[in-house]
C-alpha cells in the first residue's frame, strides 16, 4: 500500500536564500539529521544514514525557477518513492518549505516523513540563525553564496 506524508515549515528568510541550500543536493547531510554523508554524481545521489545504511537516489527535478527539488529512492527499501521539496515565497522575508514523501510501502512514507520533519526544523534553525554547517558549506562550495 502506498502512503503520502507532507511536512512544512515557514522560514523567516527569502525564498531565494532557502533555495540556495535546498537546490544543492550535495549539501543534504548538512541539514538533514540522520543523514551522515552524501555523494552526488550527475543525477545520482548516494546518502549514508545514521545507521550506516546507504541509499541510492535519482534526482528527477532540480528546478530553480519553480524552486522545486524532487528525487526518488532507487529500490531497496521501497517499491516506489518520490520526494518533493518546494520552496514557496510568502513575503520578501519569509517562505514556506514543504517536503512531501510518497512511498510504497506506506510505513516507509511515515518513517521518511518523520525524518523530513526533523530536516525542515534544522533547515529553519540554520537559516534563521544565520549559522550552521549547511551555510558554512554553502559559503565554501563552488557556486556558493554570492
Amino acid at each position: 500500500m502506498r502512503g503520502t506524508v507532507r511536512r512544512d515549515a515557514v522560514i523567516g528568510v527569502d525564498a531565494a536564500r532557502a533555495w540556495q541550500i535546498v537546490g544543492r543536493p550535495e549539501l543534504l547531510h548538512h541539514w538533514f539529521p540522520g543523514v551522515d554523508d552524501c555523494r552526488v554524481d550527475g543525477d545520482r545521489r548516494t546518502i549514508t544514514l545514521g545507521t550506516g545504511l546507504t541509499v541510492d537516489e535519482t534526482i528527477v527535478t532540480n528546478d530553480p525557477l519553480q524552486r522545486r527539488f524532487q528525487y526518488r529512492i532507487a529500490g531497496g527499501l521501497v517499491t516506489e518513492h518520490l520526494a518533493s521539496v518546494d520552496v514557496i515565497a510568502l513575503t520578501p522575508g519569509s517562505c514556506l518549505v514543504t517536503y512531501a514523501s510518497d512511498a510504497d510501502p506506506a510505513a516507509m512514507a511515515i518513517m521518511l516523513g518523520g525524518a523530513t520533519g526533523g530536516a525542515l526544523a534544522e533547515l529553519r534553525r540554520q537559516l534563521e540563525s544565520g549559522h550552521g554547517p549547511a551555510l558554512d558549506a554553502l559559503d565554501t562550495a563552488p557556486g556558493g553564496t554570492p
Binding site: T51, G52, M111, G114
Partner: peptide, 17 residues
Amino acid sequence: EPFLDPFGRFVENRLAR
C-alpha cells in the same frame, strides 16, 4: 522513542551501536 528509525536519529536506537 520510535523503533523504526532507519536514520538512527533516536538515542535509544544508538546506544548499542
